[in-house]
Structures are given as structure tokens and as C-alpha cells.
């Protein structure tokens, strides 16, 4: 089954997020209060290694499993959407303690109330589609 590798990758991701407590509402509160290094350590390590990996992939022009050159898309250069969208996202992240990945990992962990957060997130996504032409990007 071709999709199995994605399920397994997701499974590993879910275990990482749960075991490192990145899916914890308490840990997110601790982060936004700057009271522990834990979450900064996780994100910082991922970014430092990520920057290195992406630079190496570009330098050696590495190919993916299908033999295509791995390419990276530049984000468009306007800034409003990133700042305003990011701020709205941050409000929700601090309130629910969950960004989109952890919402789903938490459901698997047994926090079924997170289903309500996911429903909210789907409504929010739809609302953005509804009014996006009226927003500054």
C-alpha cells in the first residue's frame, strides 16, 4: 500500500509530539509565559537541523524517492497576511494549547474534547475562504 509510509510517518510524528509534551496545554502556557526552555528547545533544535538539512539538499541538488529534484517554493513577499494571520492563529494557539497537528494527536491520546476544537478549526478555515477577498494580504 502506497499510503502506508505516510501513515507511519504521521504515527512517528504523533508519538514525538505526545512524548515530548508539545501537545500539552500546560506546556504552551509555559512557553507563552517564558517560564521554561522546553518548547523553545524543541522548535529551536528542529529549525537549526532543518536549516542545515535544507541547505544540504539544495547544495547537493538531492532528488526525492521518485527521482525528481527536491525544490522549495518561496513564500510570496507581502507581509500583512503573515503578521495578521499569525496573530489570529496565536490567539487560538494560546487559548486551546493546540496547533493543528497536536489537536489530532490529542484526540488519539484520548482528549475527545479536542474534537470540538477541530470543528472550530474547520469553521475558521471555511470562514477565511468566505471573507478572504475583503482582508488585507
Amino acid at each position: 500500500m502506497k499510503g502506508l509510509k505516510y501513515i507511519l510517518t504521521g504515527l512517528v510524528f504523533g508519538v514525538i509530539m505526545a512524548k515530548s509534551e508539545a501537545i500539552s496545554w500546560y506546556r504552551i502556557q509555559e512557553m507563552f509565559r517564558f517560564q521554561a526552555f522546553h518548547m523553545y528547545g524543541i522548535i529551536g533544535t528542529a529549525v537549526i537541523l532543518g536549516v542545515t538539512a535544507v541547505a544540504l539538499i539544495k547544495k547537493f541538488r538531492l532528488k526525492d524517492s521518485k527521482g525528481n529534484l527536491i525544490t522549495f517554493q518561496d513564500k510570496d513577499k507581502r507581509w500583512q497576511r503573515y503578521l495578521f494571520g499569525g496573530m489570529i492563529f496565536g490567539l487560538g494557539w494560546a487559548l486551546t494549547g493546540a496547533c493543528p497537528g497536536p489537536m489530532f494527536v490529542n484526540i488519539g491520546y484520548g482528549y475527545l474534547a479536542m474534537i470540538i476544537v477541530v470543528i472550530g478549526a474547520l469553521v475558521g478555515t471555511y470562514l477565511y475562504g468566505l471573507i478572504k477577498d475583503k482582508l488585507p494580504h
Binding site: F89, G92, A98, P100
Partner: peptide, 15 residues
Amino acid sequence: LLIGGALVGFGARYA
């Protein structure tokens, strides 16, 4: 939970 989720969903797509 609903409003928090909606902010995450809206903000993620906007950003």
C-alpha cells in the same frame, strides 16, 4: 474550545 479552534483555523489559512 470552538472559538479557540476557529481562531487557529482562520489564522492558519490567513497566514
